[in-house]
Amino acid sequence: MIVAEQKPLAEIKAMLAGYQKVLVVGCGTCVTVCFAGGEKEVGILASALRMATRLDGNGIDLDETTVQRQCEWEYIDPLADRLEDYDALLSLGCGVGVQTLAERFPSKRVLPGLNTSFMGLPTEQGVWEERCQACGNCILDMTGGICPIARCSKQLLNGPCGGSQNGECEINPEIPCAWQLIWERMSALGLLEQLMEVQPPKDWSTSRDGGPRRIIRDDLRLPEDYRDT
């Protein structure tokens, strides 16, 4: 899932300065599951902002709504009829959600209430960890299902570096060394031999380095005359 965190209240308040009527838009998918931007968080944030701006003497009128998925047109289109009254939308979706709103409603000011952090999973209650960087060229078959692009601080393909000790990454003892994990896993699977191969430089063109990415599936696409967008 996409994991996000709410921005500090002061930052959100500063962003909203000058707006009188704001709609806080939550998202019912990833950010609900990671307790950052679901219906409940929308309610708490809107209340906090009401109180804080009132104390400042410029109370903002905030309404709340949460859509099932902020990253698809069909879920946000029903908002269109309600937007006229609002000066701004405060999105509690991930960066994709914010941009989906901004793209669909270009005349509205759309502001981000979250910092989108990473793609990952909850490893225990209240703890989320990164697992994928969407490099566009998966190598998990070579590394025992542990991604060095997302989990090694230096993205080594022939790790570990000299800073790995006691299973910890040199940059922070709280971070497990990805290559220690890879070595243990491959060792347990009896596949260490595969790690002896010198992995060549990665083709980063499928990653962000190749420019913004796009996937076109002609087998799924509607014929040109029938396309909505």
Binding site: G162, G163, Q165, W183
Partner: peptide
């Protein structure tokens, strides 16, 4: 002196 210690000679071989 880095870990995994057993792997270090192999990394050198690489």
């Amino acid at each position: 002196f880095g870990d995994p210690f057993e792997w270090r000679p192999y990394r050198l071989a690489k």
